[in-house]
């Protein structure tokens, strides 16, 4: 369905903590592994052992360097997957209705049986969240692991996205943004969750927690016990051992 639902009762999505993400790529291959055998066509690879390998991934981790005005440069890792936007342009451009935003939870999906592989939705997405699979000729994107989060064949605790389950640092959080008391809502409120490229008007559901300020240690030097030059080692020894009497 190409038109967007007016509003969804739940707004499922991720909070990704850039202060915690070490850029380990676990979420990348966990996602690839899960989706290679799950929802829709496998995520194919072209020339996998050749000179120019290339394949479909639904989640990729970027790494940026930032030079603040008055502090040492920093590196920040930024995993990038579908943000399940509320005003998802990828949905409205789709000529076939293959792209749709689920009315019940806001997940943006591609119905691969209907997709003609025109690629327009990928053009419409500001975030590069859609990749055309070269083998299947259909558009692939993060499904928010819709085949996990409600899956009754999985133990309850595992009903979360594969990338979230895999992330060793716990930098990825999954939940309902429509519920102000959910972990994701609380975290983004507390840490000032940000939307990527807000000027494009997509109103992303997924939010990112910005890195905390760095290199702010302000401790002042320790006060010396006494002036060792003046009182010598013996004086120091006396003084320090006096401490434990």
């Amino acid at each position: 369905m190409t038109t967007l639902p007016q509003s969804t009762t739940t707004k499922l999505g991720l909070v990704i903590d850039m202060d915690t993400c070490v850029g380990c790529q676990a979420c990348v291959t966990a996602c690839k592994g899960w989706n290679d055998q799950g929802y829709g066509a496998p995520l194919s690879d072209q020339d996998p052992y050749g000179a120019n390998p290339s394949g479909t991934f639904l989640n990729r981790v970027h790494s940026y360097q930032i030079t603040p005005e008055d502090a040492a440069p920093i590196i920040v890792n930024l995993p990038r997957s579908c943000l399940h936007c509320e005003d998802a342009p990828c949905v409205t451009v789709c000529p076939t209705g293959a792209s749709y935003k689920r009315a019940e939870d806001g997940i943006v999906l591609v119905n691969e049986d209907a997709c003609i592989g025109c690629g327009l939705c990928a053009w419409a997405c500001p975030y590069g969240a859609r990749e055309m699979d070269a083998d299947a000729g259909v558009m692939k994107k993060c499904t928010l692991c819709v085949d996990r989060i409600y899956n009754e064949n999985l133990p309850e605790i595992d009903r979360e996205p594969a990338c979230v389950r895999a992330c060793p640092t716990g930098a990825r959080h999954f939940g309902d943004f429509a519920d102000p008391d959910s972990k994701v809502s609380l975290l983004s409120a507390e840490r000032g969750g940000i939307a990527l490229m807000p000027e494009l008007g997509t109103r992303p559901v997924n939010l990112y927690l910005p890195p905390r300020p760095k290199d702010m240690m302000t401790a002042s030097p320790l006060a010396p016990l006494l002036d060792i030059r003046a009182s010598g080692f013996a004086g120091w020894l006396d003084k320090i051992l006096g401490k434990i009497g």
């Binding site: 202060d19 915690t20 993400c21 070490v22 850029g23 380990c24 790494s63 040492a72 440069p73 920093i74 590196i75 920040v76 890792n77 640092t169 890195p211 905390r212 760095k214 290199d215 702010m216 240690m217």
Partner: peptide
């Protein structure tokens, strides 16, 4: 300053 050191509060 990559990886673990990138997320460190102080470097």
């Amino acid at each position: 300053r990559t990886g673990y050191n990138a997320v460190a509060d102080d470097w």
